[in-house]
Design a protein around this nucleic acid. Sequence first.
DNA 1: AATGAATGAGCCTTCATTCAT
DNA 2: TATGAATGAAGGCTCATTCAT
Lengths: 197, 197, 197, 197
Amino acid sequence: MSERADEKKQLILSEAAKVFALKGYRNVSMKDIVEACGISRGGLYLYYDSVEAIFLDVLKSIDDAEDETGKNMMAGIEDASSADLLLWFLKEQKKEILRGKNSLSIAAYEHAFACKQAGKQSGSKHKFETAVLVLEKILTRGNETGEFDCENPGGVASNMMYTIEGMKICARTVGITEKKVDRELVYMMRQFMEVED
Amino acid sequence: MSERADEKKQLILSEAAKVFALKGYRNVSMKDIVEACGISRGGLYLYYDSVEAIFLDVLKSIDDAEDETGKNMMAGIEDASSADLLLWFLKEQKKEILRGKNSLSIAAYEHAFACKQAGKQSGSKHKFETAVLVLEKILTRGNETGEFDCENPGGVASNMMYTIEGMKICARTVGITEKKVDRELVYMMRQFMEVED
Amino acid sequence: MSERADEKKQLILSEAAKVFALKGYRNVSMKDIVEACGISRGGLYLYYDSVEAIFLDVLKSIDDAEDETGKNMMAGIEDASSADLLLWFLKEQKKEILRGKNSLSIAAYEHAFACKQAGKQSGSKHKFETAVLVLEKILTRGNETGEFDCENPGGVASNMMYTIEGMKICARTVGITEKKVDRELVYMMRQFMEVED
Amino acid sequence: MSERADEKKQLILSEAAKVFALKGYRNVSMKDIVEACGISRGGLYLYYDSVEAIFLDVLKSIDDAEDETGKNMMAGIEDASSADLLLWFLKEQKKEILRGKNSLSIAAYEHAFACKQAGKQSGSKHKFETAVLVLEKILTRGNETGEFDCENPGGVASNMMYTIEGMKICARTVGITEKKVDRELVYMMRQFMEVED
DNA sequence: AATGAATGAGCCTTCATTCAT
DNA sequence: TATGAATGAAGGCTCATTCAT
């Protein structure tokens, strides 16, 4: 693919991302994206065959960006305390939980469901498992440094991520308050460390 | 509404429920339901104006049925131990988590998202909050009988329900195994009672 | 037809007349009439096969009633002056012109057009021609009594009715004011009699 | 709008005009127009959103054409006598009155009624008022040149147009003969000029 | 590469009409 | 007679996808 084409794809992805954040996945038609990008219907088809193809690429590009951020973060604070790492991690999760619009999460859920219905495999698996692993690593390190006292880092990590995932979905369906999120996060941390209110 | 019409509605609801379980919410058209029910297009409109109206009634009829079951269960085991009640509660949740197809949960999520996008209010809030309350009541009673040792029943209940909700959504997106569910449930119970592996 | 059935038809006609006055002809469906009459769909079909059949009967019943009124009026005022008769006639026409809603005239036009399109004959011909004849008779009598000075009563009568018909249709399309109607009527009368402003 | 699109619109308008002339306004569906134009359903929607939008544009294009003709006519015969202008004007009106099919007038009436029922404003007002003004101007000029003797040109003009409008509607409902039209026109002209039979 | 007009399938909705009760 | 549930045709509209330019 030429450099020119690559730029075009970037344009499409960044505009499409806004559309998905605003309208979810199921409500987005090729027309929406075409209009958001300011290109022609046929032009879009030169790069992507379907809304789904675009969405998958949007997700991928965002994941790549997040991985990058994550790595930089990790690298930049290699000498940070485990508690700091944990706080950073949970703060990110909290942001994601509370980010209602401007977030692709609803679109991602919708897409996952559409895949399920069609018998396809959605791409969200990797993201969740990665988060569990990162969390587990932080806990383990905290155990080593004596910051945490966590018998079963793997189990705790996976429990925490399920709870966080539960809050994420609840925020998008039944609703949740920031206070509630904070309470849950503190509750989780108490399992292996001292937290003041 | 005549009894005749009521029977027809029951037919529609039960057939539609199967369709929603199979195809989710967004993929279901009036045509799908019409065909599933073996009635005419116009005939369906005599009873329901839209797919959404049908879906809401399907949900309601199921909730009613569940409330009924729940009450009977509660009544039938009023002298059951709190531990038994908790086990029954968690077993129900586990079933719901693992019930992939044959479940309306995906459709319910999709509907909640569609509501969100349209600025409407989905009906799932009540269900979640009720579950938290039931769980809290069980925990409190267990404290009183000395079966459980749970300092903060409200907090634990809400934490447990978020975790369960997280597993539910994960089961429908990234996938989850029964073993994993069991491990999480045991982990949760360990917070306030003795559980053997 | 039994007396019972006749009463039912009367009910239908009187309710339907209101509907036609309100919604015109083309916007009226069997359902509208059924609802207005408070009878069943099938019940209506026992008496009338179509909206058109009902409308024609409504027109007929109204024409009959008007003929009756007209005859009574004519009889009751046989010794009235021709000028008085003319004034009564024009007053009736004015009322009809200005009666926007609450009038079947739009429905009648719509029906006539529908007939035209379908190659049928509408029933409005008779009404118009009758009016011309009545007017001509009044003018002729006025000539005889010396009240009017009208060389060509037939021509004037037909001219006046076309003008009145023109105002009627304009009232329903481009709009017309009462003042304008009065001015036109006075203008017409000046052709054969003295009229003060 | 590109030239290409403009041509397409022209095609649609000219085909649609035939359809409206043949079937009136209320009997015309998008499907009718689509078939008349030989294009696809979706294709038509690229240019017009509704039958009404098409009809309004048809009317407009015809009005524009008529304005053009009128101007040319006026220009070409600036030195014509007022009597000639009047004759031309009345001849046009006569043509319009007698043009049964091949005329959009029924459709225009139907549309006006549909607007009335829907509480909208139909566009026919302008046309009528313009005609009154033109006629008044002709009469006034005729007075100045001594060709006519008309005390009240405004009143006469409006009276004439109501009568003409009456004939127009009668031609489409109760029917009218050419002879009858001629007689009326002569009758009107006699009000302010000498006319031989 | 890029355009955007055009297609046609598919869904939604209404309504005249029939028919078993 | 009377009911009103049921039907299916018909019309409205949208959208993914293609294709000539």
